[in-house]
């Protein structure tokens, strides 16, 4: 076993971090997008969650950003960290150079500073793709559940792990150009429901939903999405698979 990570770190002087933040408040008519720079001392185990709260407490009470779980689980804190979409709460500052640049995720509507409206985007996508189990018969909850192959349950869960953080959308060239493109997040969801025997939709039904340039044929397969997905979802395989199926459908 390894105890070194908890032992007292060497007490050298802490690093001085410079954090540049792209700031803008669209609801304030006088606001223009601009870079603001803040300097703070790093502490052991500091994440961007801790750093941003410190900046807000000490310098900038109006700074906007979103965190909920602060544990990399809920998908609230996607932002561009040195240009790359990622979850801020689980990013340790010690893994980055002392000068860090933060910007809001593109594509989504800006609420203010680092806060964007992924909720509205995701709901619109879900409504369009009908991302829920389509079942015709009502299930009687008093009766035994339908059995499911244990491996299949696990495979579905693999794709179900998406947290709708929006990182894949922010990294996607198509999503930047086509407003209605459903993104890797949407395609992955349909792959998930397609795999689920409880969903009675056929490939033709799915084709109706994603068989166009706002769906699977809009994807240029450059795979920006998979590189940035914080849950390591197999987006590449899923998109390629769907495309093959949809060509046939």
């Amino acid at each position: 076993m390894n105890e070194s990570s908890m032992s007292d770190e060497t007490h050298s002087t802490p690093r001085r971090l410079t954090i540049n933040i792209l700031r803008h408040n669209p609801s304030d008519p006088g606001s223009e997008p601009h870079m603001a720079s803040y300097q703070i001392d790093e502490i052991p185990g500091m994440t961007l969650y801790i750093a941003l709260n410190r900046i807000r407490d000490e310098f900038e009470p109006s700074l906007q950003f979103d965190f909920v779980c602060r544990a990399g689980i809920c998908g609230s804190c996607g932002m561009l960290i040195n240009g790359r979409p990622d979850l801020a709460c689980r990013t340790l500052t010690e893994k980055l150079d002392p000068e860090i640049t933060l910007a809001p995720l593109p594509v989504f509507k800006l609420i203010g500073d680092l806060s964007v409206d992924t909720g509205e985007w995701m709901r619109a996508m879900s409504e369009r793709l009908e991302t829920w189990v389509h079942q015709n018969e009502a299930v009687d909850p008093d009766r035994l559940e339908e059995p499911m192959d244990p491996d299949l349950a696990e495979e579905i869960y693999e794709l179900d792990r998406c947290i709708e953080c929006g990182c894949c959308v922010a990294a996607c060239g198509t999503a930047r150009m086509r407003e209605k493109f459903v993104g890797a997040v949407g395609l992955n969801k349909l792959a998930r429901f397609r795999l689920d025997p409880r969903d009675q939709r056929s490939d033709e039904d799915f084709y109706e939903l994603i068989g166009d340039d706002d769906g699977v044929f809009g994807c240029m397969s450059l795979l920006g999405c998979q590189d940035v997905c914080p849950k390591d979802l197999p987006l590449q395989t899923q998109i390629a698979f769907l495309r093959r199926k949809m060509v046939k459908a």
Partner: peptide, 12 residues
């Protein structure tokens, strides 16, 4: 069981 019908991939 209702949640199972709504798609929760419970381990089996």
């Amino acid at each position: 069981r209702e949640l199972a019908a709504w798609g929760v991939p419970w381990n089996r």
